[in-house]
Design a protein around this nucleic acid. Structure first.
Length: 602
RNA sequence: GCCGACAUAGCUCAGUUGGCUAGAGCAGCUGAUUUGUAAUCAGCAGGCCCGGGGUUCGAAUCCUCGUGUCGGCACCA
């Protein structure tokens, strides 16, 4: 196999450039390594542009980079292009690839380039952003593109690719700009890798929580109810209740007190907090007797009111208030997505009021809490520190101090993190918890936010040792983030096969014949006594059919009972994975279920 | 919000260039069968074809305005 590029000073250099500059280095072969795919995908993006230009001659091109999964190209044409045209473009790409054009590279001055692309206002826009006075052009057949590379030596090497979707995207990623057409594609070095990737996508589709939520009757959405307002069905209600009660105990153990604020509060309060000015466009407002009220988008103000109810001594701190807080946020229609993005959701929210000396230990305690929960669900996760956003309250100095406090807490405890510049909440910097699910996708759930601003704005105080009035620090934190999103993620993570301690139904009971129904009911009652839900499959169907139906509900355990079981006070257990059966005495069975339900404690 | 696509029975989907009473499978109901580990058989019922306007002799099908959903963008738990 010939090299497609080389690695020089840790940079990928294509052969065209290497030859030009006389560079040498380790060879990059055409395989599925990250370096190789980088080059391959970049060239595939160019091949796609070449095909698009050939099919739609007035096409103008913006940028065509590689992304995590593949590549895309943003362009504009007067032709209307839809999903159905992707096949045509693919065909055109293949026919160009067959011609095996060399990919040639040459340098010109930026002024020459501007002249060359004078009819392509998008390329001109690209050049506006380029520093320096020379640019490189890559040429394959008739097609030329302004690009810094790296590229393959020949387009004939491109064979295993697929155009995935077509979408609109703002020029330069700014919603003030015009919308371009974007086509996403994937490319690999061989057929197997392409197939594996397509299989992975198919697997993700199978796990889609919207599909499973419908099949398993966990939740639903209805047009007449309104977009983004989920309806929890009984099965989803049971699952959620289990999660809530586990988490309730976990909070109590860590010294949190349950509280509850009202669903809406007078707008004056939102003005004091800064939500009115900084978050108002996401809030719902209503008038009652001439007074304006805002439906809460966050729970902090309610908890501040709890804090204000009493005078506090430094001896009382930290004070930890928690609430399964229902919040409403006016998310943009295009952002809504199953349970992942909704307009009404419940956060597992808490606010810790503490002294500035306690910040570090409190942050670490929360991080530890997060770790306990995430490892229980077998999630890997990473943490990101987000700094001051464009729209924010409070002085730069306070932001600097609080951001540094978060970093210190992490550094001192050797906790790794990444930085997300400008990603903080308007009242303070935060640590976001990004979890990776079973098939490698990342989701943002929990968040830990450090806030000096709201205590200041509400003039919160506690009495210090010398009876001086001191302002407490507030830590906002949520661990699951929201029940909606977290349950959506759990559903996809487990592909609907929830572990016993959280499953909507723990046991499916299948009586062999009508005469065994009574024992089934007895068993079901005993299960309720130990905190397990069961469903009896006693419909007038064949035994085979009922077992099949039970399997399809993804219940963790199926027990079959007939004459033999009743006679011996046993149950026949069927494993959902292996389809094998074994018998247990009723007593052993109940204690097994009880153990499995109680084995988890956060 | 922006670009593009889509909306037919509880669910998954057919429905030709506008033309007969809009179909199927599963689920549901009724009956027969009483079953030992992934679909027993027969029958019945089920639809304002997302909503409002329009074009047409005639609209599930064409146009238009909403609503919702999907894929992205932008924005965020």
């Amino acid at each position: 196999m010939n090299a497609i590029a080389i690695k020089h000073n840790d940079e990928i250099i294509d052969l065209q450039t290497a030859k030009e500059l006389g560079f040498e280095g380790e060879q990059i072969l055409l395989d599925n390594s990250p370096d190789s795919l980088e080059v391959l995908r970049h060239s595939t993006a160019h091949l796609m542009a070449q095909a698009i230009k050939s099919l739609y001659s007035d096409a103008e091109f913006y940028v065509g980079p590689t992304v995590k999964e593949g590549f895309y190209y943003d362009f504009k044409t007067s032709h209307e292009i839809g999903e159905g045209d992707l096949k045509n473009i693919e065909k055109e790409m293949l026919s160009f690839a067959k011609k095996k054009y060399e990919i040639e590279k040459y340098d010109i001055s930026i002024d020459e380039a501007k002249e060359k692309f004078k009819n392509d206002h998008l390329k001109l826009a690209v050049m506006e952003r380029i520093q320096g006075d020379r640019v490189s052009i890559y040429k394959q057949g008739e097609f030329e593109d302004l690009c810094r590379g790296p590229h393959l030596p020949n387009i004939g090497l491109i064979r295993y690719f697929k155009l995935m979707k077509i979408a609109g995207a703002y020029l330069g990623g700014d919603s003030k700009n015009e919308v371009l057409t974007r086509i996403y594609g994937i490319a690999f070095a061989d057929k197997e890798a392409l197939k594996a990737h397509l299989d992975m996508i198919a697997e993700a589709e199978k796990r889609d929580h919207r599909k499973l939520g419908n099949e398993m009757k966990l939740f639903t959405f209805r047009e007449e109810v309104g977009a983004g307002f989920p309806i929890w069905l009984p099965a989803g209600g049971r699952l959620r209740a289990r999660l809530e009660s586990l988490l309730f105990k976990a909070h109590r153990k860590r010294g949190y007190e349950p509280v509850r604020g009202p669903e809406m509060l007078r707008s004056d309060l939102w003005k004091t907090s800064g939500h009115y000015q900084n978050y108002g466009e996401n809030m719902y407002f209503t008038n009652i007797d001439e007074l304006e009220f805002g439906v809460k988008p966050m729970n902090c103000v309610g908890h501040i009111k709890v804090y204000e109810e009493e005078l506090h001594s430094y001896r009382d701190l930290p004070l930890k208030y928690f609430e399964y807080g229902v919040v409403h946020r006016h998310e943009m229609t295009g952002a809504l997505h199953g349970l992942f993005r909704v307009r009404e959701f419940t956060q597992d929210d808490a606010h810790i009021f503490c002294t500035s000396e306690q910040i570090e230990e409190q942050i670490i305690e929360v991080v530890d809490f997060v770790d306990k929960i995430m490892s229980t669900f077998e999630f890997n996760y990473k943490m990101m520190i987000s700094t001051k956003p464009a729209k924010a309250v409070g002085s730069d100095e306070v932001w600097e101090i609080s951001t540094q406090a978060l970093k210190n807490a992490m550094n001192k405890n050797n906790l790794p993190y990444e930085i997300d510049e400008g990603g903080g909440a308007f009242y303070g910097p935060k640590i976001d918890i990004k979890i990776t699910d079973a098939i490698g996708r990342e989701w943002q759930c929990g968040t830990i936010q450090l806030d000096f601003n709201l205590p200041e704005r509400f003039e919160l105080q506690y009495n210090g040792e010398n009876n001086d009035k001191i302002q407490p620090v507030m830590i906002h934190r949520a661990i699951l983030g929201s029940f909606e999103r977290f349950i959506g993620i759990l559903t996809e993570h487990y592909a609907g096969e929830f572990p016993m301690f959280i499953a909507p139904t723990q046991v499916a009971i299948v009586p062999v014949a009508d005469t065994h129904k009574e024992y089934a009911k007895e068993l079901s009652d005993k299960l309720i006594d130990i905190g397990a839900d069961s469903e009896i499959f006693a419909k007038n169907d064949s035994l085979n059919k009922r077992i099949r139906t039970a399997e399809k509900t993804r219940v963790p355990m199926i027990v079959v009972i007939g004459d033999e079981e009743i006679a011996g006070k046993t149950v026949a257990i069927r494993d959902r994975r292996t389809r094998e059966q074994y018998n247990l005495s009723e007593k052993e069975f109940l204690s097994l279920i009880q153990t499995k339900i109680n084995e988890v404690n956060f």
